[in-house]
Nucleic acid binder design. Structure first.
Lengths: 295, 295
DNA sequence: CTAATAGTGTCTATTAGACAGTATGTT
DNA sequence: AACATACTGTCTAATAGACACTATTAG
């Protein structure tokens, strides 16, 4: 059959092209003649907010360790944003499923498998990358830091997170890796009156590259929300843990104290007591529990 | 100053390129020499699941109208997937913010402003589009259908949604626009034991283009989740409504009956009684309420 | 013994679920 | 009067919050 590969272009009112490919007689024929260069193209990256929990020794030997949330950042060695910090990330390859990219990057940075990974949000402002148009799909990963021996990437480092104040929709976040303190001030603006969605306006940010301050707060809020109605925290816990340790993780994520009896009541159905005991802490020993896999 | 634009390329173990741009002395200098063609590029589209509520007359004049959830689909007139149905969508332009694309498309399809719009999920499997590598960021929009006089796009049509059964993680969805019935069977597979996240496996789908069956179920579940803890439904309601109408919208989204007293107790703080009354329905008239903007 | 945390019992306040009842229009 | 829905009162069950108490170890 004779067939001319003619394009008859037609446009919507907003300038978007509508292709009229009525010349083709089948999908196969159309695809064979298809030229992808007719569309404007851009690049896609994937950045990962990797959360974990840190423990800090306290002066008094009797007291429990102090816990905090921490996040993995990488110091940039190249332009743009040379010497600033950012989340581990990279370009999504043309022949790679979207989710495969963060999985590959996680493996590269941590060398462990079976990490909790969840798509967070896709950031796509025109000017978010000074080089060119780059869209970034951010992911959130949760990990028990103790599963990692050493960080593979020498430029990577764990930063403890402190949420200093959260009044009048101004959030101050301080990230601290022991050497470097990063301070962020972000304003949360309610997007509409019917839901809890915010747009984030970065008021102060000296040290985080790109729009990663927004990515961070999106990650923190997603984690905080999900903690309330899922068992997501167990992805940040070791196999065996005391109920107090678990409670402390809930507390740092929710940024508020919980009452012991209520916490134990609620969490009781999700955990299983083991035969093991954590002792030698200068006070009454604690039973070790593990996550109960029911479902 | 003399400056050679040399690239010294370096690769990660997984084949991703690490650029070494130490030749440059400043960010400005680097950007001036930057060539975006060094990266593989792809296209990004934005598809929108537009939900609304339909009313259907009932044989008995005394009875209330039957409500159902509906979604806007467009019949494709071009390859690929010619004559199949899909969500309104289009390419994200190179100089257009990510969220501007669905807003532009919504305006094109409905010609109304101030539509509730929320980013849903980014779908990026390599083979989701047979033409080339296209990533799609799906959005969910909510609208009161009665604000629209006529659909601007003659190929667009509202389909009522029926969720036939939902047992053993198999969901059967029937879409019906009066002329065409679209049947989808989707299996939900739990992704991990700690959260409520699923991967969707399309078992039967004759009529929806691309991966839009997955987009649809993602939209339905997002809407259903958000209805429980936000005021999102009011975006689908007219300015004035009876409490029973509002209750029916909750019921069709949640796919279960609610008890009147409990519903009125809970919703009571969110609505405001007006002076208006809906009468002439063959039974006791009902007070009209409106959404109370507190926040 | 003391400091510190582990773990429990119980009261109260709040919220959700259920059902039965009363109220009020149209035909 | 009959039908259909609008709207309310109240009991009960379940859950969340608060506080006080007992238990157990290292030093």
């Amino acid at each position: 059959m004779l067939c001319y590969n003619l394009y008859v272009n037609k446009y919507y009112g907003d300038g978007e092209k509508v292709f009229m490919e009525e010349i083709y007689n089948s999908e196969e024929e159309f695809l064979a003649a298809y030229n992808s260069d007719n569309f404007e193209k851009l690049s896609l990256t994937s950045d990962i907010v990797i959360f974990s929990v840190s423990s800090e020794e306290v002066d008094n030997y009797r007291k429990n360790e102090k816990k905090s949330m921490s996040v993995l950042l990488v110091k940039r060695t190249t332009y743009p944003f040379k010497d600033k910090w950012c989340f581990p990330g990279g370009f999504v390859k043309i022949d790679e499923d979207l989710e495969a990219a963060p999985m590959r990057i996680l493996k590269r940075e941590t060398n462990i498998d079976n990490i909790y990974l969840e798509q967070l949000y896709t950031f796509g402002d025109v000017k978010r990358d000074p080089r060119m148009r780059i869209i970034s799909t951010a992911y959130m990963a949760l990990i028990d830091k103790n599963r990692l021996d050493t960080l593979l990437n020498s430029a990577a480092s764990w930063f403890d997170i402190t949420l200093l104040e959260e009044e009048e929709n101004i959030v101050t976040i301080v990230l601290d890796n022991g050497e470097k303190k990063i301070k962020l001030i972000i304003e949360k603006v309610l997007r509409d009156k019917t839901t809890d969605r915010y747009t984030y306006k970065v008021i102060e940010n000296e040290d985080l590259a790109f729009d990663h301050a927004k990515v961070l707060i999106a990650g923190i809020e997603r984690l905080r929300n999900k903690v309330e109605y899922t068992d997501i925290v167990f992805n940040m816990m070791p196999e065996f843990f005391t109920l107090k340790e678990l409670q402390q993780v809930y507390e740092i994520i929710l940024n508020k104290k919980l009452l012991d009896p209520a916490f134990r009541r609620i969490i009781g159905s999700k955990v299983e007591k083991t035969q093991y005991i954590k002792s030698g802490e200068g006070h009454r020993p604690s039973a070790l529990f593990k996550y109960k896999n029911t479902r």
